[in-house]
């Protein structure tokens, strides 16, 4: 069974039909980029994968756990699914180290010492070991996002969801975040990215999913999709963004 199984998912916001029967399977170790125009439903789909958004029909199973927006189920899923946000969402009143240690201590019941070691390890991975005792607002946007990645990794998720994580960054800071993702991909981490970084999607991603009007319009191996788009909608989208 695939790591992520999305089966005929429909979602409505009131009368607005935002996801219209999504089918998608993602295997462990895959790097999948979800691309599409704004309003195509890509962020919504991502947020359905860990229960941040409820869906009305169909089913999503991640790591053999049924996804629902039920409070208990979301907490259970947090052990399998990590998430990084466009706006970082670091806790500003806590240091970088405390940001990372909070959930391992409270949820995984690690001791302070174990949690600290874990935080050091994950920060080292994103190249920010020396920032452990700084507050987030002393860091650049790129550094904050790398801390957010380290914080998600500290829960040892099976899959990491990235919701436009470079969109709020100054252009010169995008590279450092993408390099972290590239390294994670090379280590076999399963990544699902909603992204506007087309070069990254093409060069690092295994698969690209193009969403349009709430549907998976086209999907396939990353290079193939970019070189030979079959639908006119994807052709015009690629022309517009590349």
């Amino acid at each position: 069974m695939a790591l992520v199984n999305i089966d005929q998912v429909h979602k409505y916001y009131g009368d607005l039909h935002v996801l219209k029967g999504i089918d998608l399977k993602i295997d462990a170790g895959e790097v999948v980029s979800i691309i599409g125009r704004s309003g195509s439903g890509k962020s919504t789909l991502l947020r359905c994968m860990n229960g941040l958004e409820a869906y009305q029909h169909g089913g999503i199973v991640v790591d053999n756990k049924e996804v629902s927006s039920d409070e208990k189920q979301v907490r259970l899923l947090a052990r399998s699914v990590g998430m990084v946000f466009q706006s970082f969402n670091l806790f500003p009143h806590l240091t970088v180290g405390e940001n990372i240690m909070l959930a391992p201590k409270l949820v995984l019941k690690l001791s302070s010492k174990e949690a600290r070691a874990l935080a050091e390890d994950k920060l080292d991975k994103v190249g920010l070991a020396e920032k452990i005792d700084e507050y987030p607002d002393c860091l650049s946007g790129g550094q904050q996002q790398r801390v957010a990645i380290a914080r998600a990794l500290a829960m040892s998720p099976k899959v990491l969801l990235c919701d436009e994580i470079t969109s709020a960054l100054d252009p010169e800071l995008v590279g450092e975040v993408l390099r972290v993702l590239e390294q994670l991909a090379s280590e076999g981490m399963t990544l699902v990215l909603v992204t506007h970084e087309m070069n990254f999607a093409r060069d690092v991603g295994d698969r690209v999913v193009f969403m349009h009007m709430g549907k998976v319009w086209e999907s396939g191996p990353a290079k193939e999709v970019f070189e030979n788009p079959t639908t006119p909608e994807l052709k015009s989208f690629i022309n517009a963004v590349l």
Binding site: E71, R75, F85, L102, A103
Partner: peptide, 22 residues
């Protein structure tokens, strides 16, 4: 920001933990 609640949720914190620690 709503993101503070969402980040806490995604990290597996329960309601009480989110309220008291975040």
């Amino acid at each position: 920001p709503r993101g503070q609640w969402e980040a806490s949720r995604c990290l597996g914190l329960n309601f009480k933990q989110t309220l008291s620690r975040v």
